[in-house]
Computed example of a mutant assay.
Amino acid sequence: MRLRLLRRRLTISAPRVAIRSALPWPFRWLALAVVFGFCAAVAVWAFEFGKSIAGLDSVSRDELLQLRAEVTRLRDEGSEQQTVAHTAESLLMAERAAKEGLMAQVRQLEADNRTLREDLGFFEKLIPVSGAEGVAIRSLQAEVLGGMQLRWQVLVIQAARNAPDFNGKLELVLTGTQDGAPWTQTQPPQGQSLQVKQYRRIEGVLDLPPNAVVKTVTARVLAGATVRATQTMVLD
């Protein structure tokens, strides 16, 4: 009988036995939490104690203060440099505007000076030549424009004071070559009506024939069929 009971306990068919702790599970979780909290507190204390021994806290704090001071200094320097840059840019723009204004004034003065020289030359040509009488050509100017046109200007005066009005004609005689052959042309063909009391400036633009090369321009003032004044200009 005992042998049978012993065999039943030792085999698979033996009855299951459950072992239960006498401590309830809420108390076990509480004890485990207390143990973990204590371990964490000990770890934090050990870490802080190690940092204090190594002097890491003071070094990091000092370096942080230095970095903040450096950042503040760099920010202030950047603001000052930006202000200086803006000031320099404003001065540069003002200087550029002043320079452009001076250049415009210089160009205007040059144009005025050129106009005054032209006017002076024009009025000098109006001064009568001693001993001269009647109608005279005091100035003849001509230039070829693009090989297709001729721009001209003639100044005619009466040297004598209180001279009667002159009524006549003005002719321009162009000489040169056309297609390599000698060429002459009178413009306008019948002459241009001319009336002069004291002085008269006449100008115009003539169209040239194709392949014509103007070498000389002659201005003639005629009274009827009589040539009263003439002047010739050679073109380069």
Results as ranks from 00 to 15, higher is better:
Gly176Gln: 04
Gly147Glu: 12
Leu116Gln: 09
Glu80Met: 05
Phe166Cys: 03
Gly176Cys: 01
Thr11Trp: 00
Phe166Lys: 07
Asn167Cys: 05
Leu102Thr: 00
Leu126Pro: 01
Glu124Asn: 14
Ala132Asp: 15
Ser130Glu: 11
Ala159Trp: 09
Met233Tyr: 13
Thr226Ser: 01
Leu3His: 05
Lys215Ala: 12
Val71Cys: 12
Ser58Lys: 07
Arg9Val: 06
Ser79Glu: 11
Ala33Met: 07
Pro164Ala: 15
Lys169Tyr: 06
Met1Cys: 02
Ala136Cys: 06
Gly134Glu: 02
Ala111Leu: 03
Arg2Lys: 05
Arg220Gly: 01
Cys39Ala: 14
Gln141Ser: 15
Ala41Asp: 13
Leu120Met: 01
Arg8Pro: 02
Ile137Pro: 00
Glu133Leu: 14
Thr87Gly: 10
Trp152Met: 01
Gly37Gln: 15
Val71Met: 12
Val35Ser: 13
Trp45Ser: 08
Leu140Gly: 10
Ile202Arg: 03
Met1Asn: 02
Trp29Gln: 14
Leu65His: 11
Pro24Met: 03
Pro182Tyr: 04
Pro164His: 06
Val234Glu: 15
Arg28His: 04
Trp183Leu: 09
Leu56Val: 07
Ala85Asn: 11
Pro128Glu: 00
Phe36Ile: 15
Gln178Ser: 08
Gln66Ile: 12
Gly147Leu: 13
Pro128Met: 14
Asp62Lys: 11
Trp45His: 07
Met93Arg: 07
Ala88Ser: 06
Arg61Asp: 04
Asn211Leu: 08
Arg28Lys: 02
Trp25Tyr: 09
Leu65Trp: 12
Met103Leu: 12
Leu116Glu: 07
Arg2Ser: 12
Leu172His: 04
Glu80Asn: 11
Ser130Tyr: 04
Asp57Arg: 02
Arg107Gln: 10
Ala111Thr: 05
Lys215His: 14
Gly55Asn: 05
Val71Asn: 15
Gln66Gly: 11
Met233Ser: 08
Ala219Trp: 11
Leu67Gly: 02
Lys169Glu: 11
Ala219Lys: 07
Ala88Val: 03
Gly146Glu: 12
Leu174Lys: 01
Ala94His: 01
Asp179Gly: 06
Gln187Lys: 10
Leu109Arg: 06
Ile127Lys: 15
Gly204Ala: 05
Gly134Asn: 00
Gln153Ala: 10
Arg228Val: 14
Arg201His: 05
Thr232Cys: 10
Ala219Ile: 13
Val17Cys: 14
Arg68His: 07
Val213His: 07
Leu91Glu: 12
Glu48Ala: 07
Ile137Glu: 00
Gln108Arg: 07
Ala88Asn: 08
Ala163Lys: 09
Phe38Leu: 00
Ala181Ile: 09
Leu6Thr: 10
Leu74Ile: 05
Lys99Met: 10
Ala43Gly: 10
Gln187Trp: 11
Phe36Met: 15
Gly50Thr: 04
Leu92Thr: 08
Ala69Glu: 15
Asp165Val: 10
Asp76Ser: 06
Lys99Tyr: 00
Glu63Pro: 02
Leu6Phe: 05
Gly78Gln: 07
Ala18Glu: 15
Val205Thr: 09
Leu235Tyr: 13
Pro210Met: 09
Phe122Tyr: 13
Leu109Gly: 00
Ser13Glu: 14
Val135Thr: 01
Gln66Thr: 14
Gln231Arg: 14
Arg151Asn: 11
Leu126Asp: 04
Glu77Lys: 02
